[in-house]
């Protein structure tokens, strides 16, 4: 059984069709790159998987079940925005996560917070945006989830931090679990991908193994993407 299965998914905003008949299968133990331009539908797709938007039609099944409290207990989601209660301190949000998620590893979170130079007693509203984003990454990666979904984890971040984020992602996700990284910054992450999914104008244009695609086209994923979706 696939970890996540999306069948004939459609979503429109008024007259505008954001997702057109999307079909996808996400298997266990792989890192997927959901690659597309801004506005291609990546975030919408991810939000529907995470029950933040309603679908017009189609099915989204996690281990065979409809999205609900079961899927949420096994999916760890990092959105593009800061979603924390900013009046809380870092240690309070760590406690919050450990209270609600049975798969949350408190010790790992504290260690990552230390490694990233975050002050555990600081109020979140007093932290810089970059630090808030790092904190969110820590919280998401400290869960022993079956599926991690990271929406633009490298956006707006300097190259050194980007490398650190990639390392943190690689070294902290549970063995056997899967990862979906959605991004438009392909060259930064392509070396860690098992599978790539190209999405454009709400449609899935291509799904393939990353190295297979490189062998076939004799170029980088980034280059293949640019060629496929020239403006």
């Amino acid at each position: 059984m696939s970890l996540l299965e999306i069948k004939n998914l459609n979503k429109s905003y008024d007259d505008f069709k954001v997702l057109k008949d999307v079909n996808l299968k996400i298997e266990k133990g792989k890192i997927y790159g959901l690659l597309g331009k801004n506005g291609a539908g990546k975030s919408t797709l991810i939000k529907i998987i995470n029950d933040l938007l309603t679908k017009d039609s189609g099915e989204v099944l996690f281990l065979g079940k409809e999205i609900g409290s079961f899927s949420k207990a096994h999916i760890s989601y990092l959105p593009e925005r800061t979603y924390l209660d900013k009046s809380m301190k870092v240690k309070e949000i760590v406690k919050y996560f450990s209270e609600f998620y049975s798969d949350f590893d408190c010790e790992k979170a504290k260690k990552l917070i230390k490694d990233l130079d975050l002050n555990i007693d600081k109020q979140i509203s007093k932290m810089s945006k970059g630090m808030q984003e790092k904190l969110q990454l820590v919280l998401v990666m400290s869960r022993e989830a079956d599926l991690y979904i990271l929406d633009e984890p490298l956006g707006g971040v300097d190259p050194a931090t980007r490398d650190y984020i990639l390392d943190t992602i690689l070294s902290n996700f549970k063995e056997g679990s899967s990862l979906i990284i959605s991004t438009h910054l392909i060259s930064d992450i392509e070396r860690i991908l098992d599978e790539v999914i190209f999405i454009d104008k709400g449609e899935i244009k291509l799904t393939s193994g990353a190295d297979q695609l490189r062998e076939k086209e004799n170029s980088s994923i980034d280059e293949i993407f640019r060629r496929s979706f020239k403006c």
Binding site: D51, K72, F100, Y101
Partner: peptide, 14 residues
């Protein structure tokens, strides 16, 4: 709003 991204992804029924 922004915090809804956390609340709606908690492992609870809506």
């Amino acid at each position: 709003k922004d915090e809804s991204y956390l609340i709606h992804t908690l492992p609870v029924e809506r």
